[in-house]
Simulated scan of single mutants.
Amino acid sequence: MLRRLYDWTLAKAAGPGAERWLITISFADSSFFPVPPDVMQIPMSIARPERAIRYAAVSTVASVAGALLGYLIGSLLYQAIGVPLLDFYGYQDKFVAFAASIKANGFLWMLAFAFLPIPYKVATIAAGSVGLSIPVLIAASILGRGGRFFLVALVLRRFGAKAQELIDRYFNALALTATALFVGGFVVVKYAF
């Protein structure tokens, strides 16, 4: 089933509406959606390596905008939206300690969460709930998200065909590894505090 989804995504990645989906997923991932934008960016960059840098740029801009929405959820709508989202992801119990860490070391936490494949939405909501400086949030988001998306873009632009061969050959192992990293990110956040 994962293989069919991958093949379907590759086909859609070459289509005219793919960039709009990439923007939507990048925006939503930073504030409430559980699927990271890499799911679209990677196959799109493999299908069209000459556009990989553009895809990284639009992912970065949309992701930073989504981080601001996450911040607003934490700042203005914490009880109405933030608490139910955190309950959905199973983070509510540890959130207070995590939010205190964000307040004390906001830039470093936001940078780490933005770069790593862990749930950034929790960090953006926490940043809003403790009133982290918006310029700090934006700078960390640009550096972390941009660093991650442009690193992926440069690798795929340089090794696009070879990267696709490796993905095709080792698809099951890579899918399991990506899933483990994604789930591991949730576990780290949940039990780190």
Rank of each mutant, 00 (worst) to 15 (best):
Y6I: 07
Y6Q: 06
D7W: 07
T9E: 10
L10C: 13
G15A: 14
G15I: 08
P16Y: 03
G17P: 01
G17A: 13
E19K: 12
L22M: 12
A28N: 03
A28P: 09
A28L: 11
D29V: 02
S30D: 07
F33I: 03
P34W: 05
P37Q: 08
P37L: 04
V39G: 07
M40E: 02
M40I: 14
P43K: 10
I46N: 08
A47D: 11
A47L: 11
R48S: 15
P49T: 14
P49I: 12
E50F: 14
A52K: 09
I53Q: 13
R54S: 12
R54L: 14
T60F: 10
V61I: 11
V61D: 11
S63M: 01
V64S: 07
A65P: 00
A65D: 05
G66K: 04
A67K: 06
A67V: 00
L69G: 04
L69I: 10
L69C: 13
Y71G: 03
G74A: 09
S75K: 13
L76S: 14
Y78I: 01
Y78G: 06
I81V: 15
D87V: 12
F88Y: 13
Y91L: 10
Q92D: 09
D93Y: 06
V96Q: 08
K103Q: 13
N105R: 15
G106V: 08
L108C: 03
M110P: 05
L111I: 00
F115A: 07
F115K: 02
L116P: 06
K121Y: 07
V122F: 08
V122K: 00
A126P: 02
G128F: 00
I134F: 09
V136D: 04
I138P: 01
A140F: 06
S141R: 04
S141P: 02
L143A: 11
G146A: 08
G146S: 04
G146F: 05
G146W: 07
G147R: 04
R148E: 04
F150H: 06
V152M: 15
L154R: 02
V155S: 02
L156M: 14
F159W: 13
G160Q: 08
Q164R: 15
L166K: 09
D168H: 06
D168N: 15
Y170K: 12
Y170Q: 11
F171D: 05
N172H: 13
L174C: 06
L176F: 09
T177G: 07
T177V: 13
T179M: 11
L181N: 01
F182Y: 09
V183Y: 04
V183K: 07
F186E: 12
V189C: 15
A192Y: 14
F193K: 05
